[in-house]
Design a protein around this nucleic acid. Structure first.
Lengths: 208, 208
DNA sequence: AGTACTTTTGACCACCTGGTTAAACCAAAT
DNA sequence: ATTTGGTTTAACCAGGTGGTCAAAAGTACT
């Protein structure tokens, strides 16, 4: 357990991430965080005054980790199809390795709705510009006029949900761990195909 | 708070649902369940011996509620496009009114992976038959050969994720409650269009 | 060696947690 | 009226909870 070069404060934060990610706010124990970091429980309180504080630190870290790259890709100069492919590929890989993150964040958003805006401020999302860009790109490249918000949410849904629903998928289909991995690998190509096909007009959109 | 015709046992279960759905297993308090049901805490233990038991009762109820109609629709005799439309319409409505359910279930699947198989046994899923049917239908009606598992997961993702991510969506887009409702209403038509378009071949699928 | 400062610890606490138990309550049957 | 059965309650408990505090250990400077 000899913990290398990290300072106590850093080790505590890392330990807190591990514990909060896996157990959530209510399930996490200050003692467990201290044990995981190899320090006395009081030291946790010394650096982060209380449970809420350290949770917020963990939450902000997780949140920005999850969305920073998202914006990077979506605001890049790539054509839309490349964006989708790049994004799915990156996200499926990233989320496979950090499977706990999305559920942790979604739970956090429900439990602590107050602190969201603070974090939103830090990680500039500027959705208006993003939506304009998506609408324009899809119109130009796919010749289809569709509410970009739905596209955006659909892309997120198709990338994130399967990771969250891992245990469900595994039980439904009876997947072993290797089979599940292969399933996620397949999605790296099948999901972009699915999305881009959905956005390709073959005849005019059905009126309603 | 005069609770009408329900027996104490039923009132306790209803109270337990409310509390567990909103707070999760670790966040829920036996005392709060008792208060919510308007009974003494000991009575909760009298009917359901311990916290785990009553949680399992709540979980099974939620789980079967969520998937029973799913199978009903997917195993019906409808053409595939009608299935998708029916399913999305039903699910978006149902989930809007039970927004806590999906997250509650997904968390439960992570926290109590042991009890899953029991429940899976009760609510027969028989995924093999379902997958065969989907593949066959999509091939016949859309003339496209695609792994039905991905279709199935995609449909679930597009219906369930937005509900789970409610607070996220609301914050990103700055939606009021009414705007969010309208957004979900729109999805009842936009999502089936999206899916069916994605499954309509305009040129042969890229080989691999 | 002594001082001033931060870091780390053990002991402690008030409160809350799920759970137990024995007694009270209440109907229906005798 | 008494018994019998299920129902409901108050009182209680051992263990755990986040959090405090003062003392100890370490560090750097003089």
């Amino acid at each position: 357990m000899g913990n290398s070069v990290l300072s106590s404060e850093e080790r505590i934060l890392e330990a807190a991430k591990k514990v909060f990610h896996h157990k959530g706010f209510d399930g996490a124990r200050m003692q467990e965080i201290a044990d995981e970091a190899g320090v006395n429980k009081s030291l946790v309180h010394y650096y982060y005054r209380n449970k809420d504080n350290i949770f917020q630190a963990v939450f902000e870290d997780a949140f920005s980790k999850l969305i920073s790259r998202l914006n990077e890709i979506f605001f890049s100069e790539l054509p839309f199809s490349a964006k989708i492919e790049t994004f799915i590929d990156y996200y499926v890989t990233f989320l496979s390795q950090n499977a706990y993150l999305p559920l942790f964040i979604l739970n956090g958003l429900y439990e602590k709705p107050d602190q969201i805006r603070k974090i939103m401020g830090k990680n500039q999302l500027s959705p208006d510009r993003l939506m304009d860009q998506i609408r324009k790109q899809v119109k130009e490249e796919m010749n289809i006029d569709i509410n970009p918000m739905h596209i955006y949410i659909n892309v997120l849904a198709l990338s994130i949900f399967p990771v969250i629903a891992k245990p469900l998928i595994q039980t439904i289909f009876g997947f072993s761990n290797e089979q599940l991995l292969r399933f996620f690998e397949e999605r790296k190509t099948s999901v972009p195909e699915f999305i881009l096909n959905a956005l390709t007009s073959h005849e005019k959109n059905t009126s309603r």
